[in-house]
Computed example of a mutant assay.
Amino acid sequence: MREKIRISDKSKVLSDVFGVFYTGTHKGENAVDNASVLTDMGNRRKLYPFLDEIVGKTIYNLTDGSSGVITGITNNTVTATLAGGTGDDWDLNDLYVIGERVLNVAIGGPPVPGASMPPPDGYDTIADGNKDVTVAGTREPLVGSATPCKKVDIQANGDNTDVIVIGANTCVAALVGRRGIPLLAFSTYTLMIEDLADVNIDAVVSGEGCTFVYYE
Rank of each mutant, 00 (worst) to 15 (best):
R2E: 08
R2M: 08
I5M: 12
D9P: 03
K10P: 02
S11F: 13
V13K: 06
S15F: 10
V17S: 10
G19T: 02
T25Q: 08
G28Q: 10
G28W: 08
A35R: 03
V37C: 04
T39L: 00
K46H: 02
Y48H: 07
L51G: 03
L51V: 07
E53P: 00
I54G: 14
V55N: 04
V55W: 02
T58L: 12
I59P: 07
N61Y: 07
N61F: 06
L62G: 07
G65A: 08
S67F: 01
G68W: 09
T71E: 15
G72T: 04
N75D: 12
N75E: 12
N76E: 11
T77C: 00
T79W: 05
G85D: 11
L92V: 15
N93E: 14
L95H: 05
E100C: 07
R101K: 11
V102H: 11
L103S: 14
L103T: 14
A106Q: 03
I107N: 02
P113E: 00
S116C: 06
M117S: 12
D121G: 11
Y123Q: 02
Y123N: 02
D128F: 01
K131L: 07
D132K: 15
V133M: 12
A136K: 07
G137A: 12
T138E: 08
R139A: 15
L142E: 10
V143I: 03
A146H: 13
C149N: 08
K150R: 14
Q155G: 11
A156T: 01
N157H: 13
G158M: 07
G158N: 09
T161F: 01
C171D: 10
V172A: 03
A173F: 10
A173Y: 11
A173P: 12
G180D: 14
L183E: 15
A185F: 06
S187C: 15
Y189W: 01
E194D: 14
L196Q: 01
A197T: 02
A197R: 06
V199Q: 02
V199S: 00
N200H: 13
D202E: 09
D202C: 11
A203N: 13
V204Y: 13
S206Y: 07
C210I: 07
C210F: 05
T211F: 04
T211V: 05
Y214L: 01
Y215M: 04
